[in-house]
Write a protein that binds this DNA or RNA. Structure first.
Lengths: 301, 301
DNA sequence: CTGAAAGCGCTAACAT
DNA sequence: ATGTTAGCGCTTTCAG
């Protein structure tokens, strides 16, 4: 039996000796690491940071910790980092896929570590995901553009993965509106702002009639806006530009950027919640959340 | 003795059974977690991402993994996250300090986890650090501005921590050049672009004679540039604007941003290397790296 | 309910 | 060189 005040003494001793329980030992014994991992294409881009932030916040509430790894859009890096996380016995993993068709799902499945995918929403049985349809979002952007009366459309962004889906949606919208097929100017998924600028000029050279350009993300769109300012192209008068993601810069830049908002922070936060409830054994928690997208009409298109 | 081909069989069996060694058990037994942690003020800002990226890259080479935590510029969050990392027995920790004067050093010291600080360079015995002098960098910016002939100077940024050091340097440069004390418009360290814009307008209202403004980072400067475009202020004709950090946007924006480059990625990479060699027991590895700063003259000032 | 004991899956130190 | 064994510091189970 504990004498009154004994607990307090113990606490004081703990503080005095600076005893810190070893979570590693705890993890081994309990078979629970209290660690969740995030695997993202790149850490040095504004695009996914909000998602990581959101994940981090939901994990922090539950005293979980966050391990991060980047793939640089390479399949073997993705596999390597995922294997390392499996070895670490993470309790769950959030993935923003770098490329389609890798076998990481299977590996995680076999190790029975819960996986939640974000930034897309493929239909796959039993998979956890929180995101939106990139194709539909691209379609919405295209419809907005055609409804505004812009005729000749273009797309500036990656021609693979999510970028390809957005372009496919844009193409479908153009077809639905009876417009010509939008021009595609592919740039790498990790494109620097300089690369984006060069891609824009290439697109303009190829398509002198270009009336509106949809960019794969707001940073690319910002770069386009900068180039327009530089060469004196009036936006949206001579050219409409539309971004994607609704990053903070979109509502600050001049002219303010018309874009497709996609709840980047929420995807991370909800991904964390999904993982946590799955880890907690909650069976009837949602497994698939469509956060949708929303065209935000501002000044640039 | 291993029969020829036995090793190959074992490997095949490992692959077939999908056996993945448990790193947690290894950590406990070897007293080496092969994890390094990064504690940053915020994850959802472009400012520190390159540093985290650099750290991540140097750790990946050594098969180390990266745990991240954010403090939201709050002392108690910082302490909590650092304690959790100590409990996890991380082999090292990189810290971008949120506020001065917290006791995290002491706690890490007692737990004997190597600490490397970045984004500043205080003189402290035995401490690991890789960074630059914020005060000197602020001074360099101020000298550049005064040499360009701009009279009335201003500063837009946090009035605490690194921001305060940069302002102190700016003030010293103004004094050295015989100019009036630069106006200080404080905004929070986590300021949104909208807050930065509002701060800029407040500064202009207060100081109608303002000729040049130094911003605490390039995102704030970008926001200022956007507002100038919006209200028709000619940059640098009517107002010079200078940024800090040399983020990718600095060289892309129109007009291109004059700024102070500070090797964000390298700070992270070198921090990782310092930690790794310290963990490896290398005694005569460098403990203090001054990466310096460099004024990059572009169009905006 | 409290307390002892048996692992968790590795590494490292030892013995052979 | 190779094989064996004793922990690492917790959680959990099982007696009492």
């Amino acid at each position: 039996m504990l004498a009154p005040g004994t607990l307090a003494q113990v606490r004081r001793a703990i503080e005095a000796l600076r005893y810190v329980p070893n979570l590693t030992a705890g993890s081994l014994a309990s078979r629970r690491s209290r660690i969740v991992a995030a695997v993202v294409p790149t850490l040095s881009s504004s695009i996914f940071n909000d998602t990581i932030d959101g994940l981090s916040q939901s994990l922090a509430r539950a005293q979980y910790q966050l391990l991060v790894g980047q793939t640089n859009y390479r399949a073997d890096d993705e596999r390597e980092v995922v294997d390392a996380f499996i070895g670490r016995r993470v309790d769950g993993l959030m993935l923003i896929r770098s490329l389609p068709g890798t076998d990481v799902d299977e590996r995680l499945e076999r190790a029975s570590v819960p996986l939640v995918e974000t930034w897309e929403l493929p239909r796959r049985e039993g998979a956890l995901m929180v995101g939106f349809s990139n194709r539909d979002a691209g379609w919405a952007a295209g419809s907005y553009l055609s409804a505004k009366g812009y005729g000749r459309l273009g797309f500036l962004g990656s021609a693979t993965g999510r970028g390809a889906s957005r372009y496919a949606g844009l193409k479908a919208a153009a077809r639905d509106a009876g417009l010509a097929e939008p021009a595609l100017q592919p740039i790498s998924a990790m494109a620097s702002l300089a690369e984006a600028a060069a891609g824009f000029h290439a697109l303009r050279a190829r398509e002198p009639q270009l009336r509106a350009v949809l960019c794969a993300n707001d940073m690319i769109a910002a770069s386009v806006l900068f180039e327009c300012a530089r060469v004196g192209v009036d936006v949206p008068g001579s050219l409409a530009v539309m971004g994607f993601a609704d990053l903070p810069i979109a509502s600050a830049i001049a002219p303010r950027l018309t874009t497709v908002q996609v709840s980047a922070w929420d995807m991370g936060f909800r991904a964390g919640e999904m993982l946590l409830s799955r880890i907690g054994g909650d069976v009837d928690a949602p497994t698939r959340i469509d956060l949708g997208y929303r065209v935000i009409a501002r000044e640039s298109a």
